[in-house]
């Protein structure tokens, strides 16, 4: 207040300093005077560890700022418009976000079945796999089955897309005949794009001729 008064007493050079002091004071007073503190968006991002402990990262961007979170429970908080790097931990996350995490859907699970050579019949090894799959499926709410066919690299991409879809459809018919609801099943032909054993083109590889049954 005295700084303000002296500025009024005719010292023009002091104006800028006096003004900014007054403004800061006003801002502080305004902040104190507002009865309940105004709700300030205070966004927070927490990187969780991967289920398999593999490395992962999230880049947080706010305004012109960027912050990379690349360690488990590394966290970014937006405070007064500025990003701050902080650290959380498993216990805090469990306490603060337990209700949230409790509703997280089950992670998709995959079951692999092989075909008999040159045929559209499943190999005998597939029977116990399908039994295990059905048991797991029964425990899922709003369960979905995604059947994805794969081929080896013999033949063109287009032909393998078709063949992989036919293999997936074959498995679907087997599952439907075994009592699964057709409506809950999606078939996908992924062709030769995702070999389990990488090979050169046009190489026959039985392990790549497979069908994945994913449930979620």
């Amino acid at each position: 207040m005295s700084a303000h008064a002296s500025a009024l007493n005719g010292r023009p050079v002091a104006w800028p300093a006096a003004l900014s002091t007054a403004m800061v004071t006003l801002a502080l007073l305004a902040g104190c005077a507002t009865p309940p503190a105004p709700i300030v968006t205070r966004d927070r991002v927490i990187l969780l560890p991967q289920a398999d402990d593999s490395p992962s990262a999230v880049e947080v961007i706010a305004g012109g700022q960027r912050l990379l979170l690349d360690r488990p429970f590394a966290s970014a908080e937006l405070r007064n418009g500025s990003l701050a790097a902080t650290q959380s931990d498993a216990e805090t996350v469990r306490k603060t976000y337990g209700t949230l995490l409790a509703q997280q859907p089950a992670r998709p699970r995959s079951f692999m079945v092989q075909f008999e050579a040159n045929g559209s019949r499943l190999a005998p090894s597939a029977a116990p796999v399908i039994t295990a799959m059905r048991d797991a499926l029964a425990a899922l709410p709003a369960a979905e089955v995604v059947i994805t066919g794969h081929t080896d690299r013999v033949g063109s991409i287009e032909a393998n897309d078709r063949l992989s879809l036919v293999r997936a459809e074959t498995v679907r018919e087997i599952l439907v005949a075994a009592g699964l609801a057709r409506a809950g099943i999606t078939v996908v032909g992924r062709g030769e794009r995702e070999p389990v054993v990488p090979t050169a083109d046009e190489v026959a590889e039985a392990r790549n001729r497979r069908v994945e049954i994913k449930i979620r």
């Binding site: 966004d43 927490i46 990187l47 961007i61």
Partner: peptide, 19 residues
Amino acid sequence: TRTVVLGVRGTEFIVDAGE
């Protein structure tokens, strides 16, 4: 969120946008 954009690199994370 209203204030933050996240770029993701194969990850699990939590975002809290408060009120």
